[in-house]
Design a protein around this nucleic acid. Sequence first.
DNA 1: GTCTATATAGCGATAGAC
DNA 2: GTCTATCGCTATATAGAC
Lengths: 180, 180
Amino acid sequence: MSRPPHAREAVLDAYEQMLIDEGAGAATMDAVARLAGVSKGGLLYHYPSKTDLENALYARLDALAAADVEHMQNHPDGPIAAYIRSSASSGDAVDRAIVATARLAQEGRDDAVVALRRVRESWSRTVRPHVRDDVARDLVMLLGDGLYYNNALGAGMATSAPSGAALDTLVSLVERVVRS
Amino acid sequence: MSRPPHAREAVLDAYEQMLIDEGAGAATMDAVARLAGVSKGGLLYHYPSKTDLENALYARLDALAAADVEHMQNHPDGPIAAYIRSSASSGDAVDRAIVATARLAQEGRDDAVVALRRVRESWSRTVRPHVRDDVARDLVMLLGDGLYYNNALGAGMATSAPSGAALDTLVSLVERVVRS
DNA sequence: GTCTATATAGCGATAGAC
DNA sequence: GTCTATCGCTATATAGAC
């Protein structure tokens, strides 16, 4: 696949960043082009319409999520701890793609909802063999959702989202409850 | 306080509904006025600017959340069960106000973020005396966030959000873990 | 492959009749 | 208290030069 056009990725990065920082309303073609350092015409060569930009984001999310599942499965602490810990972070590439896609889902874009559902489903399938039953799996998944919601989606909504030592305690508490 | 102007509440209802169903981008003055059954001029008599409409939503959320905390405290099954169960629902007045406000928070409206944080904080204070420690409180709150995220915010994102018997099991599982 | 210039449409908000 | 009409701005998208 050699070197993909630098501008194309730069534009997608800028779009993602705008969605995360200021929401879908602020992520206009002009604003994205400016942040990416290209002109509007340059942007529209790579992505002829706004829908094309959105679809590129969903494709990026799919690819990153597949890699993330693999990473979870090979993690030394096991998939559950890996899942909860990664849900509490909000800086890496998967997280950014998810948050950006969630912004579009909140604006009623159906394809964004479908993409998010697909990712959550693949995580759920990865967690399931490592917990006692379906209720335990639900607990793990919902906890992950809650952490995501607080750390990323809510833009600092929680005043007390656990991290550091509190997160360690939470992880071991949950593992004790759900282990098969 | 006698009868408040019927149109004023109808407009706010319509705004809330548009935010929930189609997101902040679709909730234009025209669209809200049309759904409320008034003209744009009529809407602008009650809410001279879009910011006024937003502020009215935050005020409604504050009032409903205060009533909800009282309801939690007086619930026969205790605040924890009441909190988790109400987080899993998504039809009543508080839920609608929260989801609508969350849509605005996702579009970078700071006042919406503050309003949501205030509500979550009051719930957290209500839950705290009924659980063992801060980690247990975090678990309950994050579980509630996860349920909210799935049932309301994600617009059907989860394929397997627990309800009915699965929710009962989840509630009793969590209560066993967090009880002081 | 990237740019400028422009067409078209929809937004929030104002003015003033009733 | 509610309406119609309209202004000014900004958005997406097109056309075509370089």
